[in-house]
Design a protein around this nucleic acid. Sequence first.
DNA 1: CGCCAGGGACGAA
DNA 2: TTCGTCCATGGC
Length: 286
Amino acid sequence: MKKYTDIQVLDNHDGTCRVCNIHGFNLDKTIRSGQCFRFNRVGNIFTIQSKDKIIKAIQKDNDTLLVMSNKMEIEDYWIQYLGIDIDYTGIPLLIKGNNFLEEAEKFSSGLKIMKQNPWETLICFIISQRNNIPKIMSTVEKICRLCGKEVELQEDAYYTFPTPEQLIDGIDKYGEEMSLGYRLPYLDRAAKAVLNGELDLDKLQSGKSTYECALTELEGLYGVGPKVANCVALFGLGYTNAFPIDVWIQRVIDEYFDGHIDIGKFGEYAGVVQQYMFFYGKYLGK
DNA sequence: CGCCAGGGACGAA
DNA sequence: TTCGTCCATGGC
């Protein structure tokens, strides 16, 4: 998969930067397509958090983003995090002739697969089980508030995403108060596996391991099945071929693909196609 | 294989 | 107001 090399970050010297040549990247579609759960939108201003970092971002036009952060952090972290640098021009050829996918691609244009922090992605998608997006977001916010550290931005208080250690301490301290339900032991055991070195998420990233290897490792965790493992592989580990199947995707497959889809032909873009199906299918569903 | 387990938000009825 | 459903998984 090709990467854009001409994206420019221009410092406005007022605490903000302009990110130019973003090749049609759409912030709203990307953030609100159900990949990430730590954001807040007021009008066209998105506040986005990852680990201990935080930005405010506004889409100015098709080719420009205004981001409140420093140039280095935007270049080294947020552009990759938001998936702005990945070129999807190979997709139209792969879905040619399939009416549903062509419509979905049109509807989703500018939506990118994010490259989130693996640990954060794992915890968020364990929490996502059998929950809807508003509930996932409030639960994630809650574990950050209870277990993370307070940080301030423009006189507002925010909370960092807890480290494995902080999460374990928080679970000991607050337990059921965290309203995690049956997911509580899943989170506890995942955090302990990372802390004691049993699970090295960094080594599972694309380029350092394989999709099959990563999936096996993830599914070995208590409370992690194929759905969550594929979400972590796709949104956190960089395996764009991962194809998580949730109730929405299953509904789309049943309704528009006669109950079966051959994802092999989408190759490394399978996960992107899946996200188009999710985003468009959910829109059609309501 | 089928069923059940926390819980809370949300929309349909 | 009640009821079904929501980006699942493990235990039985």
